[in-house]
Design a protein around this nucleic acid. Sequence first.
DNA 1: CTGTTAGCGCGTTCAA
DNA 2: TTGAACGCGCTAACAG
Lengths: 351, 351
Amino acid sequence: MQPASESNRSRRPTSVDVAQAAGVSQATVSRALSGGSVSEATRKKVESIASRLGYSPNLVARGLVTSRSGMIGVVVADITNPFYPQLLEAIGNRLADQGRHMLLQNAASNSEEEEAARLLVEQRVDGIIFTTATSDSVAVRELMERRFPLVLVNRVVVGHCDAVEGDNLSGTAAALDHLVELGHRRIGMVAGDARASTTRQRSQGFEQRLAELGVPLRLDLVRSTNFSYPEAFCAAIDLLSLDKPPTAIFCHNDLTAFAVVNAARSLGISVPGELSVIGYDDVRESSWESYNLTTVKQQFQEMAARAVDLLESRIANPDLPPRHTVFDCPLIIRGTTAPPRGALAGKAVPR
Amino acid sequence: MQPASESNRSRRPTSVDVAQAAGVSQATVSRALSGGSVSEATRKKVESIASRLGYSPNLVARGLVTSRSGMIGVVVADITNPFYPQLLEAIGNRLADQGRHMLLQNAASNSEEEEAARLLVEQRVDGIIFTTATSDSVAVRELMERRFPLVLVNRVVVGHCDAVEGDNLSGTAAALDHLVELGHRRIGMVAGDARASTTRQRSQGFEQRLAELGVPLRLDLVRSTNFSYPEAFCAAIDLLSLDKPPTAIFCHNDLTAFAVVNAARSLGISVPGELSVIGYDDVRESSWESYNLTTVKQQFQEMAARAVDLLESRIANPDLPPRHTVFDCPLIIRGTTAPPRGALAGKAVPR
DNA sequence: CTGTTAGCGCGTTCAA
DNA sequence: TTGAACGCGCTAACAG
């Protein structure tokens, strides 16, 4: 039934095929389809033939010529942490607006990050967004030296590099102000990976603000994690099993805050009755009734948009000076914070 | 300080550069670095020079020759639904094992799905994993006609195509058996998008099993959603505000089950005391204390691994007959299901 | 084992 | 406005 004439069934048509069918040169097809100067008549003809043949340009071949792939690499640390999907959604939307695509790499460890960066470079992405760079990140350092377009989200490293991040010091300060105002004096912390700049800044903000508030820093109430749920859960169990457990715990992200809340519940400790918990990020789940988490908000949309814009301008002009944008981190007070049991709500009773 | 001799600072070295430095032909470099037959001596020499120059092959150029990009496109419906990150993690790991990379596209609507597919094809991915295909998916149909390598995860469409999915009928049946056993008779359902095969199968299983169990199907207790949290939350408020609300609700995924639990809590309705809830997927969050959700488990790891394997073999041999793998969906009983208030735990009291 | 040659599909000169 | 020719960086065939 089918005409035997179509010799190459599964081969995708190329611009040469379109050119032959249209009776023009391949160069004319190229111009017609990408806005070059051609007569209106030939443009019409080429376009109609192209769509009839189901032609779509081969971006690989185009990339080889233009040395621009149209792809942006994005490296995340742990895609199952809800922070990243929500950030990725924002980044992806912004990239799509610009006709770009996202090559995603999950990189849990530093070595995986290097591997991810290598792959992205080999795939000739036009730029990379890192959301995972730790201070000892070899990959980032090497790319910077090569002047490869990249931007760090939620991280900074030594040396100068385009970056967007939240104001971790003031965000942490706001969280502590709230807790101390409520009357808490035994404040614990579930920290993230010490090599991440967010961890360092939030830990520093923690110490600093406690000092300013005249509240003792209790290092025995501080635990390090890798930002993951399981480690935070264990850390919380550990803290809550102390003879004198903290009355409040400040967590370096919402995921670990969830773990702390759940650990408390598993021990029959009520939140916020017996334990106050504060997270960081304000992922969507935090606002849902089951957690109703008091947390420090990161402005996802704005950070993502800014990161993409920074990268875009960096690709267009690699000689720009490094730029660094810091976003506000407002405290969102919800239901996991309350005065400590038996406290008189801090030093002052509101008039 | 720097020698002025390096004329082209920012240009990446090519295999020609390596060849010149090593005093061999470019073809030899290519062979040496990709396991061709060369003498051990020249291989050593080429490798050392390549790493000294910081050479890494241009995968775009390689792709143009081999017409294989090494990339797999993955299309998801809503990356903020925790089901997808957990599936993506598994897919990504499996792909990485095979030296491939993942080009991610978020496609909320059907038109976005077509756009996503078009982009992936233009980028010359070697194959596509769809996790979103609805029955009226034009994109999938077109790709199938072109015999483009693709596999559907958690979905099937009319026509034959490689696919992996859970056993939705038996999974749903197990959920209903559990509810009816507990004594529930007014069972509601928060369904997903009617165009998704999972929705159709789970709805069909719902009707079918209720009939088999002799429990009346109450269509007034059924609501459709787009699988999202906000729609499910509204649907739950709606159902729970009825004069005679359901005593149990079966949800088409965990995300909507979370919404139902939270909606109940926002109305002061206790779960499972006054309302039993069952989800579908068994995402990690379901097992955490705050939800402790009874749910039907999908076997992420296995489904992801199988999907990648199917795609890999399809790429290697496009003429394979279509294959369809169905995974068991065991019921995981946790804390959101209990007998309805005042019930005598079903028809029979165990001996 | 190695060098030479020929493309992969496209964008981009240079002439006409 | 259009066509011919070239080359992006690489792999694969073919000689030697």
